[in-house]
Every structure is written in C-alpha cells, then in structure tokens.
C-alpha cells in the first residue's frame, strides 16, 4: 500500500460535500425537512373521515380535540394540512425533476455541440424564457380540467429553459478549457467528456437551479389556486389558503384557518431560498 492516498472513499466524499455547506444551507434544509416530516409522519395519525364536509363543528378554534381548529365547512384543519403538504411539495419536486432533467440534458448538448439543431434549440430556449408561463397556464387551466400532475408537467414545459440556459453558458466556457482537449487526446468520447468532465463541474449550478425550480413551481401552483383554477379534488396548502381567504377568514378573525397555511408556505419558500442562496455561493466559488 502506498503511503499517500490516491482516491477518497465515497463516504469521505459525501462528508466533504456536506462540510462545504454553510449555516444558511442547514437552516433552509431544516425548514423544508420539518414540513416533509410533518407531511410524512402525520399520515399515521389522521383519519380521512375528519375532512369530510361537516365532520365537526364549523369554524371552531384550536382545542384538544382539533389541535388546529376546524374550517367553515367543519373539516379538521390539522388533518387537511397533513394531507395537503405532500401534494404541494410534490408539484414542486415533479416539476423540478422533469425540468432539470430536460434542461440539463439540452443545456449540455447545445453547449457542447455545434449545428443547426443546436441553433434551433437555442432559439427555442430564448423564446420560451420570454413567455410568461403563469399567464399561459391561467388560460389553459381555466378551460381544461386539471390535476396537480398536469399542472406540474405544464410548469416543467415552461421551466426547463431556465435550467438549460445557464447550463449551456457554463458548458460553453468549460469546453474552451484545455482539459477538454486533453480528455479528447486520452480518447474519451464526446459522451464521456460531457458526463465525466462537464457535468461534475456544473453540479452546484444544477442543484441551485433545481431548488429554485421547486420554489417557482410551488409559487405558480399556489397562485393558480388563489385564482380559483387549481385542482380541487386533492387538498393542497394553496387550496386551504384560497378557501380561507375567500371565506374572509382574515376579517372574520378565523386566524387558525389562514395563518397555519401561510406559515407553512413561508417555510417552504424561505427554506428553499436559503438553500439556493448557499448553493449559488458554492457554484460561484
């Protein structure tokens, strides 16, 4: 065995990645994880029947029986919010997974290769970025019956260019570096260069992009709910807030109805923002 270590174990690598994050990152992660845990563990303690219309007394404040109180339709708000949390987080994650995959792939490919197809995709990216997605979505959602999955897919269709463009810009600068030429001289294929030489260099960018896509998707989905064109068959935090707001909960002093969903949404947005702030810093380092 040599006296010097030549490679690091995967465990060491993971430890070093986590060491590179700062406090901002962990506060953000904590906020988001709290909600994830709330939504996941909560499922074991609830009874679906508590959210049927008129299951309990109407608009009753928090009590031992209803920890979060009930809404004007007599539903248990704690149960409702526990069921709503995964739906809302899912929209963000599904959108971001689709958009980041497509965006990263097309960003890598259009950054690395030259040709008419590349020109076409680049033009498409430029135009897509200029299209106000939320407004188009309003037009679609007000006609077509939509589910959260459909909304996530449509959001992803408009979101991928926001990943593709910065990835492409990064690749454009990376491909001019001598190490790419050296990889070619070592007989690495274009495919290997893209995935072994380029991709690791832009991982922090992709991660930061993923997090902001999650945040933007949730922002848009909640916005659609507020306009009354979001899906109503599944409870989501946005839907709870919309019902509370349009039942004038703010003015009727039904604080337990509108404040918890507000806090939960704020936790999501602030948490994701702190994470992406930290990832941005790492990417730019």
């Amino acid at each position: 065995m040599q006296a010097y270590s030549t490679t690091r174990s995967p465990a060491q690598k993971i430890v070093s990645i986590f060491k590179s994050f700062d406090l901002t990152f962990y506060i953000g992660l904590l906020l988001v994880l709290l909600l994830v845990v709330f939504g996941a563990l909560g499922q074991f303690f609830i009874d679906q029947r508590d959210i049927r219309l008129g299951a309990s007394s109407f608009s009753s404040p928090p009590s031992a029986e209803h920890l979060f109180g009930t809404d004007a339709l007599g539903r248990d708000l704690l149960t409702l919010l526990i069921l709503a949390t995964p739906t809302t987080l899912n929209i963000g994650v599904v959108t971001a997974v689709i958009a980041t995959s497509i965006g990263t792939f097309l960003g890598l490919v259009t950054g690395y290769f030259r040709g008419p197809l590349e020109t076409g995709i680049r033009t498409l990216i430029d135009i897509m970025i200029a299209i106000p997605a939320l407004l188009i979505l309003v037009s679609i959602a007000s006609f077509l019956p939509s589910s959260n999955t459909v909304i996530a897919v449509i959001l992803a269709i408009f979101a991928w260019p926001f990943t593709a463009r910065p990835v492409r810009a990064q690749v454009l600068s990376l491909r001019e570096r001598a190490f790419v030429k050296l990889s070619k001289l070592s007989k690495r294929s274009d495919f290997e260069i893209i995935f072994f030489d380029m991709l690791p260099n832009i991982t922090p960018f992709i991660a930061a992009g993923f997090v902001s896509t999650v945040s933007n998707a949730i922002l848009a989905a909640v916005g659609l709910q507020l306009l009354g064109i979001g899906p109503i068959d599944e409870p989501s935090i946005g839907l709870v807030l919309q019902e509370a707001f349009f039942a004038s909960a703010v003015f009727r002093e039904l604080w337990w109805w509108w404040i918890p969903p507000m806090i939960m949404l704020s936790m999501i947005f602030i948490g994701l923002f702190l994470i992406s702030l930290s990832l941005d810093r790492i990417a730019r380092h």
Partner: peptide
C-alpha cells in the same frame, strides 16, 4: 427573506396587519 416569499403571501400579511 421577504424577497423569497411570493408577493401574494406578503399581500395577505400586509392586508391583515395594516388594514384589518
């Protein structure tokens, strides 16, 4: 931090605090 919250959530908070 306010910048990370959507405008409409902030609007609801402001509505509650300053108007109600």
């Amino acid at each position: 931090l306010l910048g990370s919250i959507p405008q409409y959530l902030l609007a609801i908070i402001l509505l509650f605090v300053f108007s109600f």
